[in-house]
Computed example of a mutant assay.
Amino acid sequence: MMKKITSVTKKIGLLLTGLAAASLLLAGCGAGQQTERSAEGAQSAEGSSGGYPQRAIEYVVPYAAGGGVDLVARAVAEKLSEKWGQPVNVVNKPGGGGATGAQYALKQAQPDGYTVMANVVSLGSMMTAGYTNPPVKAEDQIFVSRIVQDVPAFTVKSDAQWQSFEEFSEWVKANPENLTWTTSGVAGFSSFAVAEWLNEIGVDISKTRMIVTKGTAESIPLVAGGNAVLAVHPVSEVSAMAEAGKLKILAVSGEERSPYFPDVPTAREQGIENLSAFWWTGVSMAKGTPDEVVQKWDEALAELAEDPDFTAKLETLKLQPSYLNQQQYQQFLQKETDYYTELASKLGLRK
């Protein structure tokens, strides 16, 4: 009897050993597939000699040309092309609220540093907060550096009846069903800026009407023409129409007035506190991009933040430099994502 038990035990041991070996083989194959793209990226980035970059770089903007993200990317590309002696080419890939271009840059292109992405708040913290399964995830990318920031401008048509943000907010409290506002989607910058404001003044956002647009180029004419009541975009994106007298900025929601519209009071000055949403853009790369490439971009962007020519260019765009290095950027994003996720969950915006 003892011999039979020993024989069975040996057979079970051999079976388990075989299963373990097979599991290790399968795991090795999976790991190989996951690291293959990274290895190819590292090899491509190193090149034969001379270091990165050795050829043209594709700087993907996931939006149409002419918006704030695009203009910043072009200013960066111009300076880095001069610095590195290689073309940094801005390529616009709009669609899906930014998801189309982001998926191309972060998942389809090789992670070799020759495809980078212009990131923005709506593709970073807001995308994660707005969707339980976002099409662009934080874990899909390396957040390299933040470059600039801007404050929201609450904007209505030039001949609108309201003369102040306080007066407008009182009207919205009394007539929430008459408020129409533009946004690029659930995770759009405008969605969170509007949601934060409505929450602060005690208005149920579900009683208002969201109008989804393809971006600023479509949104602003809707408001200027009276086909939507409110647009909330960064100051830089509404400035031209405001200066031309086609839009009226009722308030900016920053700690201080915008240096570009010093006569426009902040929301806080008009009795509306706790509006903290703001716009920013930076650079992201695909996971697996070589560390030395990431570092080279981070260091170059840090230098640009101190470059008088670059900061002067930002001033013409009505933008403010706001550099964060890779570590600071990650910490900032985590805090901002937590805040927006809580807000979206509270207001029923999370999809």
Rank of each mutant, 00 (worst) to 15 (best):
L333V: 00
F192M: 14
M210T: 07
F332Y: 12
K335M: 01
F154T: 07
E315C: 03
E273W: 00
S49R: 00
L80F: 02
G98Q: 11
V121Q: 12
E315A: 12
I201T: 11
K287Y: 02
G124P: 01
G226D: 03
A224H: 02
G68F: 07
V156R: 03
T182I: 05
L15G: 13
L14F: 10
K207L: 13
F278W: 07
H233D: 10
E256D: 15
A56K: 06
L19M: 14
W181H: 13
V283K: 12
V91M: 04
A65W: 04
K3R: 14
L14P: 01
Y52P: 00
Q43L: 07
E255R: 11
E58M: 07
W84P: 00
T341Y: 02
G282A: 09
L222N: 04
G85W: 00
K296W: 00
E78R: 13
Q161L: 06
T281N: 15
A105T: 08
Q334L: 04
P94V: 08
G101D: 03
G96A: 08
K79M: 09
L317F: 09
A153N: 13
L324C: 00
V203D: 11
K173H: 10
Q328T: 03
G32M: 05
V186F: 10
S7Y: 11
D298Q: 13
F310A: 08
K3L: 10
M2A: 13
